[in-house]
Design a protein around this nucleic acid. Structure first.
Lengths: 95, 95
DNA sequence: TTGTCATGCAAGCAGATGCTTGCCTATGGT
DNA sequence: ACCATAGGCAAGCATCTGCTTGCATGACAA
């Protein structure tokens, strides 16, 4: 079975939230960030003030949609963007 | 002011619903459908059973997002797909 | 005019969603 | 061992969302 369990709709639902889109923006600009790194940069660069749990739950959604991949090292968990599922959009309506 | 009033997020929110995505699929395949035409084809071609009001409200959302353009003729209202707002997605994450 | 057809408007409701709160686990430093 | 750090789990809550229900409007036909 695959690394992510979501259907096609999960990608669209994941993109529906502005904080999650900002997270994708951030991960595109700087790949491999940890949770706390992301929180800090969301504040300083996007003007967002989200709690740790809020961001953590957003990352779960993004990971379930296959838009974020993670790798664990010790007590750190690094996140990186994966734009592959976004092809579902461009392919569907021939962009 | 522009023809549609929505911000960027409205496009993503509009795409978050599976019925709305099916409507976009339908309008891409056959442009200029009326509300009842859409309902009928959503049933026969997508296996969806949505009420008139449900589809009507979905069309409002899609129109507000700029994804659907309408034209009125007498008592008929024709709908057509506009994929231009989808560029917001491809541009944002360089697809 | 009377009736029908295509669509619009608005209130109400159940389920989904994003967030908080509080506690828990685990890793690494001293 | 002790403590701080990085992250996880789960219940509760306010809001949002999609849908229904019921009535209203406007266009065309007989």
């Amino acid at each position: 079975m695959l690394a992510y369990g979501g259907g096609v709709g999960d990608v669209f639902k994941a993109l529906a939230d502005p904080t999650r889109r900002a997270i994708l923006d951030e991960l595109q600009e700087r790949s491999g960030q940890t949770l706390f790194e992301l929180i800090s940069r969301l504040v300083s660069r996007h003007g967002l003030t989200s709690s740790r749990q809020a961001v953590s739950q957003h990352l779960e959604v993004l990971e379930a949609a296959g838009l974020v991949r993670t790798r664990r090292e010790g007590r750190y968990k690094f996140h990186e963007l994966d734009t592959a599922p976004l092809r579902a959009i461009t392919d569907r309506w021939r962009l």
